[in-house]
Design a protein around this nucleic acid. Structure first.
Lengths: 223, 223
DNA sequence: AAGTGTGAAGCTATTCACAGCC
DNA sequence: GGCTGTGAATAGCTTCACACTT
């Protein structure tokens, strides 16, 4: 079964995504089975954690053997909602927007850009892989016409909330937010924040106060 | 005092970075004090959480009044290790590397790029703001000469571990890793992973299984 | 009256450890 | 013998609630 028995924590979801990546690597390497220990080691967590995470969704392994690689990958894709296409609107075609647009993984995983918005007059009207770049003012119409379900928001802070409101009005339910700002959204809308400043600064903290940050998990008893 | 009394969790560190951003906004808006409630609201957490986080490092507020904005910002900069410059080597000058290089916040916060490496022959030899781009093979020498303390790693997966080893050999102690791969590093080296695939896929999970993901915190009793 | 600082309680996540199956 | 699945134990984080200060 792949029905979530109970609440699934954000950390579990993020690990599932890592497991999926490892499984696809293993499949390319021709491995047919993998133990929780091996999977954990490549994903940077513990064997017990792998088993716990997977057990939330069903029993996918065989005792004494481990997990069959391709079927488990397929299960994880189903669990994560990656067996279908997702229509995505790209709001902001600057550096980060472009990087994501060209990220190969993006399309391989079934994320399809259905609209691109940007206010740069040099960009407006251009086509990227058949999608015409439109000015920000047309966001709501563009998102609605494209049937966008999620958005990537990578715009200047000053316009971020206004564009968020337009996205919500257009029926978008999930936003990957690169703007270093807490977006206000109604209940039921998911915002996933990626904040480069936080990433950098937490690295600075770790280096300047090496004794003060919490440790990392090890693997199972025997190495 | 700004000495970390005890272990500081990763989540606390990330929130401190958010608080700092909010405080700097407030300072620009001319606010001289802020309550934990107001700070929490702009940072997307709870008032109790703000007070708990700050209390790990000292007593910065005045009862009945709140926190003085500029002094608290200064304290947070000291706590986070942002009162000094950090020498950073940029490994990979592709889309993401470029985006970070041009991220204004990066330089404002005292992160200084001392070396840039890339194997693209079109880029090698060019100068970006006075820093010459060198081929990947020169990474260890370049990092050592520049006295790099941290690195931004944004290269193809195939070369990531080799370059990581070179970074470690050159004395780099912190890596902001954009490569979707678990880097192997010795004890004492901090790796901060940013994985776009994880971000996108966890958004897909949230949208496809809306009932199954854990909720968000509210603010203090009264709104 | 407003708002911090903090012990205690509550809750969530991780790790342990072992019964059970291959 | 190897390895999963999982209840129980532990650890860690968040929220509560209130004494105390301005």
């Amino acid at each position: 079964m792949s029905l979530p028995a109970r609440r699934v924590s954000e950390s579990t979801v993020r690990r599932l995504s890592l497991y999926l990546r490892v499984l696809e690597e293993l499949a390319r390497e021709g491995e047919s089975t993998v133990s929780s220990r091996a999977l954990a080691s490549r994903a940077g967590t513990t064997a017990a954690q792998v088993r716990k995470d997977l057990s939330l969704f069903g029993s996918f392994g065989k005792r004494g053997l481990g997990y069959a690689v391709p079927p488990l990958a397929e299960q994880l894709r189903a669990i994560m909602g990656l067996s279908r296409k997702w229509r995505v609107v790209l709001v902001g075609a600057g550096r980060i927007g472009t990087a994501l647009f060209e990220y190969p993984h993006f399309r391989e995983r079934g994320f399809e850009i259905v609209a691109i918005l940007d206010d740069d007059p040099v960009k407006v009207g251009k086509e990227w892989r058949g999608v015409r770049i439109r000015p920000g003012a047309e966001l709501e119409a563009a998102a609605r016409e494209g049937g966008a379900e999620m958005a990537i928001l990578a715009v200047p802070a000053a316009v971020a909330q206004r564009l968020t409101d337009a996205l919500v009005a257009a029926g978008v339910r999930g936003i990957l937010n690169f703007v270093p700002l807490q977006l206000q959204v109604p209940e039921g809308i998911t915002v996933n924040n990626v904040n480069m400043a936080v990433e950098l600064e937490s690295l600075a903290f770790a280096l300047q106060a090496p004794a003060a940050h919490s440790g990392r998990p090890r693997s199972d008893k025997a190495i």
